[in-house]
């Protein structure tokens, strides 16, 4: 190793060298996407101890900081390669973690949508002096609508997480799920498929417009699909008015879902780094 400059000085590990070692460890941890904070911390500590030993060995042989950093890098290997190997070891756990986290998000979101829409409907029933019981008769259709809202919103969010750099790709899960849902609902409940599908589209487009940094523009996201449906089919159905109540329920639901997603990211922030 004649190309390394040997220094007669003896230092403790500090400054640039420490930063270099930290960078190697951080890169491995970032790319390996290890499941769980505890495991990440352990791997970080373990790799760091190894790099410290490597650096100390090089320093004890008289190499300066720059040469030591190169030796460490050469002997340790590329962080990308190490990270890929770690990722493959913990692939199953990572997948299980993601499924668990997604289940939590979907469950909490569904409960929130049921509560929000339930409250909106109850208030509307009180103000219009109609019976809430009449709504309960079509509860399974209502549930289909709630699930469609969650599916529309969460599928777009999943797309954003899977493909953070491409909007076109981020839309893929929503579009695929929407088409699948249309096929299933059209087959199972053809007479009642329109509203859940509209709810799905509204929630997805609401989420889409929530990405734009203009206040309240996302309100148009929840309105637009309903407006299109109303423009297309409204004239064909006698007395059909724009469903303001549905829009209100959808909009408040999207707002609640946005907060849930934010909370979700805060709780599982490490897993999304």
């Amino acid at each position: 190793m004649v190309f390394f400059y040997k220094s007669s000085e003896r230092h403790t590990l500090e400054g640039k060298l420490v930063t270099h070692l930290d960078r190697i460890v951080s890169r491995v941890i970032l790319l390996a996407k290890l499941p769980g904070n505890k495991r990440r911390g352990e791997v970080e500590k373990e790799l760091r101890a190894h790099l410290d030993d490597l650096a100390e060995e090089a320093r004890s042989q008289g190499y300066d900081d720059e040469a030591t950093a190169r030796i460490v890098r050469m002997r340790f290997g590329e962080p990308e390669e190490v990270a890929a190997a770690f990722a493959s070891v913990y692939a199953t756990e990572r997948l299980a973690n993601r499924i668990f986290q997604a289940s939590i998000l979907v469950t909490v979101s569904t409960v929130a949508v049921v509560v929000v829409t339930g409250i909106v409907q109850s208030i509307a029933a009180i103000f219009t002096a109609t019976s809430v019981i009449s709504t309960l008769r079509g509860l399974h259709y209502e549930l289909a609508g709630f699930c469609a809202i969650v599916a529309g919103y969460c599928s777009l969010y999943a797309g954003e997480r899977l493909f953070p750099t491409s909007l076109a790709r981020a839309l893929l899960p929503s579009v695929s799920l929407g088409l699948g849902l249309a096929a299933v609902l059209g087959w199972l409940i053809p007479q009642h498929a329109a509203l859940p599908l509209a709810a799905f589209a509204c929630a997805a487009s609401g989420r889409l417009l929530q990405r734009i940094e203009i206040r309240l523009i996302w309100l148009a996201g929840t309105a637009l699909p309903l407006l299109i449906a109303w423009t297309l089919f409204g004239p064909l159905i006698a007395g059909w008015q724009f469903p303001w109540l549905v829009w209100l329920g959808l909009t408040i639901s999207c707002k609640a879902l946005r907060e849930i997603v934010r909370l979700f990211e805060r709780v599982f922030v490490e897993d999304f780094s």
Binding site: H50, R75, G77, E78, V82, F86, S88, V89
Partner: peptide, 12 residues
């Protein structure tokens, strides 16, 4: 061999 690759093997 690249020493970093020892750790994934140990974890496996």
């Amino acid at each position: 061999f690249k020493e970093g690759t020892l750790y994934p093997a140990l974890h496996q």
